[in-house]
Design a protein around this nucleic acid. Structure first.
Length: 271
DNA sequence: TTAATCACCTGAGGGC
DNA sequence: TGCCCTCAGGTGATTA
């Protein structure tokens, strides 16, 4: 399930492989994703070259001279580069084929992802314009974060997963960052102390940096742009480890549902 | 404005 | 072995 580190890993992997390559054709086998893929995508991209790949939140932004292709991997999407593409398999929904016979292939079993096109300022696209700051940018400061927690009654886990507050913190990394910071996921956001806010901000950044360094998680579906799994699973401390010993105090980790999401924490180490 | 809930979708895993 | 059911989860839309 791609989260920010996974998307960043895909971006870094694909950038040297596809930038400045001219597109020959686009094969659309399934256009029904979260939103319909534009039927004229092939016409839009034919003989055009990708000038750069950027990432905003979990969206990959493929820049062209005349617009931007927005791709979200959803829950189960992968984007892989093939020098010589094999025969399409199940859920290989889209191929972006280059003149040199190589291809960028989008596969998404659950079809929660999206492939959209905009010829306007991509930052003003309705999916992107209301997003909060990038967690690893200079805009995600202690002052900003503390102000956002004030007068909030929702739990802190839900707050850090809110993309209007800060982008890119999904369920896995929310669990991990809260454990790292020693903060109980159910704690009301508005009751965080200044020190806890600082600790959590640092923990979010540390967790994401480590995951990017490791190449993302390997949870079930995730593979990077070369089809290889990430390696961060080895370092997950609490996610998916209900009833297993806490890495810090060895007491059994608790598991509960919070806003419909699996939540793991140590009731002794997290307050 | 904030918080909670729903819908989308399919593969994996467990129970029978 | 096969069928059925539940669960997993990111995020926009809807509702309260």
């Amino acid at each position: 399930m791609p989260e920010l580190p996974e998307v960043e890993t895909v971006k870094r992997g694909l950038t040297p492989l596809v930038t400045n390559k001219a597109i020959a054709t686009v094969a659309l086998r399934q256009t029904h994703l979260r939103w319909p893929i534009p039927n004229n995508l092939g016409q839009l991209l034919k003989n055009q070259s990708i000038t750069s790949i950027e990432r905003r939140s979990k969206y990959l932004l493929f820049a062209f001279n005349h617009g931007t292709l927005i791709i979200h991997l959803g829950m189960s999407g992968t984007l892989r580069f093939h020098a010589k593409p094999p025969h399409p398999e199940k859920h290989d929904h889209v191929d972006i084929c280059f003149h040199d016979q190589s291809c960028l292939r989008y596969n998404d079993p659950r079809r929660f992802g999206a492939i959209l096109w905009t010829d306007s300022d991509v930052a003003q696209h309705k999916l992107l314009k209301n997003l909060g700051p990038e967690p690893l940018s200079n805009h995600f400061t202690y002052e900003y974060f503390f102000e956002k927690t004030r007068k909030r009654q929702c739990n802190i886990k839900q707050l850090i997963m809110n993309s209007q507050i800060v982008v890119g913190v999904g369920n896995i990394y929310a669990n991990e960052a809260l454990f790292e910071a020693g903060i109980k996921p159910t704690k009301s956001a508005g009751k965080l102390t200044k020190q806890q806010t600082k600790s959590l901000l640092s923990a979010i950044q540390l967790t994401l940096r480590q995951a990017i360094k490791q190449g993302g998680t390997t949870l079930k579906d995730f593979k990077n742009s070369e089809g290889k799994p990430g390696y961060f699973t080895m370092q997950l401390q609490v996610y998916g480890k209900g009833n297993k010993p806490c890495p810090k105090c060895c007491n059994p980790l608790k598991e509960l549902k919070l806003n419909g999401r699996s939540t793991f924490f140590c009731h002794l180490c997290q307050h």
